[in-house]
Structures are given as structure tokens and as C-alpha cells.
Write a protein that binds this DNA or RNA. Structure first.
Length: 89
DNA sequence: GTTGAGCGTT
């Protein structure tokens, strides 16, 4: 079909997170675009520190599109790097 | 306590 894979969720990769941002704060930020089904900052288990990137899953396409279409995302003084998440199947 | 280009720890 097209170059865009089908999916059942609307998932974003979020990079360049401030070190201090938690999953809760990530969800809070992206909730302005609509309902967030899940938001998680990836953590280094050994070090117990943020890896400064994470994932956000919206429950609605409209919210996903709104977040994706905004060119600049600013959180706690950092410009976030928001991309479509890599997802197969 | 530190750092900065990365798609995951349940």
C-alpha cells in the first residue's frame, strides 16, 4: 500500500528530553493534544537514570496528528525531538 | 553528582 505502516495505536518517539523529566511529566505535556494512552521515559536500569528519550501513545488519531503537526515542542526549556515511532506490525 | 542523538525496562 503506502509507505506508512498500518498501526493500531498512535505512537511517537520523543527525543532530547531534559534529564529531569519523568514519564508522568511527559504524559502531562502531551495531554494538551488529546488523551494519552501511555507515556514512558526510557530508563537505564543499571544507572537508574533517564536515557533522555521516550514514547507517547495517543488513543486518538486526532491527538496524534495534532502533536505530530506542531513543529516545535518545548518542555522545561528544551526543544523536543518528536518523530513517528519505529513500529513494525 | 556527571551527560546529550538516542526507538524501550514492565
Amino acid at each position: 500500500m503506502s509507505g506508512t505502516a498500518a498501526r493500531s495505536t498512535y505512537k511517537l518517539f520523543v527525543g532530547n528530553l531534559p534529564w529531569t523529566i519523568s514519564s508522568k511529566e511527559l504524559r502531562t505535556y502531551f495531554s494538551r493534544f488529546g488523551h494519552v494512552a501511555n507515556a514512558e521515559v526510557v530508563f537505564d536500569k543499571q544507572l537508574g537514570l533517564s536515557k533522555y528519550y521516550g514514547f507517547v501513545i495517543f488513543s486518538q488519531r486526532d491527538a496524534y496528528n495534532s502533536a505530530s503537526n506542531q513543529n516545535t515542542h518545548l518542555l522545561d526549556g528544551r526543544v523536543l525531538n518528536v518523530q513517528r515511532a519505529n513500529e513494525n506490525a
